[in-house]
C-alpha cells in the first residue's frame, strides 16, 4: 500500500497581534498554534477519521492540507509532492485532485447558481477541455442518487440531506484521488445521516477514492473509517485502527469521547468517564501533558513534561504516561 497523504509534525500558526503590537506588548504571546506537531498518514483507498471536539484544530488541519492555510512547520506530502513548497498556480492545479465537502452544506453552495452549474463549477474553474457540462452534471447527479430535476434547483430549495449530496457531487466532479469531508453528517437527522454515510462508503468502494473524514462524533466514523486519529488542542493524542480504538481505547481522552455519547437505552448505566471543565485555549497551553487539566486519572508527573507520542502496538500509538 502506498501513502497518498503524509503529514509530518505539521504546525499551523495564527498571528493574534500585529508586528507592531508584539513589539510593544511582550507580556502575552503574539501568535498561537491551532495545530501543533500533527503527524498522520492516509493510505491509498482508505479512510482516515480525524476526531475531536470544537477547538481541536481539525478543520484548520484540513484547510492546511488543501493549501488554504499555510503551515509554519513540518511537511505535507500528497502523492510524494511537498505542497508547502508549491507556487500559487501549482497549488491550484493540485487542488484538482482533492474534493472537499464542507461542514455547512447549504452555506458552501453559491446561492445564485443552480445545482447543475454548482456541480460542474470545478470543470469550468480548471477549464477542462471538451467537457459537456450537461452530461457531466447528469452523471454526477446520478452518482449521488439525485434525480435529474434537482439540476435546476437553487441551494435554498434543497433539504439538508440533498445539499450534502450536491456537495458530494461537486467534490467528485474532477475525479479526485482524495475527498476531505468536514463533518459530513452535521445538522442532519439520524435517519438521513445513514444515507450520507452509506453514499460515501459506496462511492469509496466503487471509485477507490481515499477519504479524510473530520468529525466530533465517534459513532459516525465507526462504520466508515479504517483508521482513527484523535485530536486534542491541535495535537494528535491517539491514533490507531478503528476496530482497535473502539475495542481498546488507551488514551483517557478517547475513553471520555467514547463514553460521552449516550446510548438510546435507558437502562444502560455506562460507567462514564466525565471530563471536568472545558477545552483550554491554545493561546495558553497547559504545561506537561496538555490534557492534564481535564483528565480524570491525572497524576503529578502529568503536569511536568509532555508525554511522548509512542506506539503501543503495531497499529496503535498515543501520548500518555498512564494509558488505560
Amino acid at each position: 500500500m502506498t501513502d497518498i497523504l503524509q503529514l509530518k509534525n505539521v504546525c499551523v500558526r495564527f498571528r493574534i497581534k500585529s508586528a507592531m503590537g508584539a513589539l510593544f506588548d511582550r507580556t502575552s504571546p503574539a501568535s498561537f498554534d491551532a495545530v501543533r506537531d500533527a503527524s498522520i498518514t492516509l493510505e491509498e483507498g482508505q479512510t482516515l477519521a480525524l476526531v475531536g471536539e470544537s477547538g481541536a484544530g481539525k478543520s484548520t488541519l484540513a484547510l492546511a492540507i488543501t493549501g488554504l492555510e499555510r503551515i509554519a512547520e513540518g511537511s505535507i506530502q500528497f502523492e510524494g509532492r511537498e505542497i508547502s513548497q508549491m507556487q500559487a498556480n501549482e497549488i491550484r492545479e493540485y487542488r484538482r485532485g482533492i474534493g472537499y465537502m464542507w461542514q455547512n452544506a447549504i452555506g458552501s453552495l453559491s446561492p445564485r447558481m443552480t445545482v447543475r452549474s454548482l456541480i460542474t463549477e470545478p470543470a469550468r474553474i480548471h477549464r477542462v477541455p471538451n467537457v459537456n457540462t450537461r452530461e457531466l452534471s447528469s452523471k454526477l447527479l446520478d452518482l449521488v442518487g439525485l434525480s435529474e430535476e434537482f439540476g435546476d434547483r437553487y441551494p435554498h430549495q434543497l433539504s439538508g440531506g440533498q445539499a450534502r449530496r450536491v456537495g458530494v457531487a461537486r467534490a467528485l466532479a474532477l475525479n479526485p484521488r482524495l475527498i476531505v469531508a468536514d463533518e459530513p453528517t452535521a445538522g442532519l437527522d439520524v435517519s438521513v445521516q445513514g444515507e450520507i454515510l452509506n453514499l460515501l462508503n459506496q462511492l469509496q468502494d466503487e471509485l477507490k477514492i481515499s477519504m479524510l473524514v473530520i468529525t466530533h462524533n465517534l459513532n459516525v466514523v465507526r462504520h466508515t473509517s479504517d483508521k482513527i486519529a484523535i485530536m486534542y488542542l491541535g495535537r494528535i493524542v491517539e491514533q490507531g485502527d478503528t476496530a482497535e480504538i473502539f475495542s481498546r481505547p488507551r488514551h483517557p481522552y478517547t475513553l471520555a469521547l467514547l463514553s460521552a455519547s449516550p446510548s438510546p437505552d435507558p437502562d444502560m448505566q455506562a460507567d462514564r468517564i466525565e471530563l471536568k471543565g472545558e477545552i483550554p485555549s491554545p493561546i495558553n497551553r497547559p504545561s506537561g501533558c496538555e490534557f492534564h487539566t481535564r483528565c480524570p486519572f491525572v497524576k503529578e508527573t502529568c503536569s511536568e513534561s509532555p508525554p511522548p507520542f509512542e506506539a503501543v502496538s503495531e497499529s496503535q500509538a498515543l501520548s500518555c504516561y498512564f494509558p488505560r
Binding site: S191, G194, R222
Partner: peptide
C-alpha cells in the same frame, strides 16, 4: 422502531450499510 434502529450510537458492530428511513 426505525428511528431507534437508525441511531448510530445503537449500532455496535461495524457495517458498511447503515439503516435509513
Amino acid at each position: 422502531q426505525k428511528l431507534l434502529e437508525c441511531d448510530p450510537a445503537g449500532i455496535q458492530t461495524k457495517t458498511r450499510i447503515l439503516p435509513v428511513i
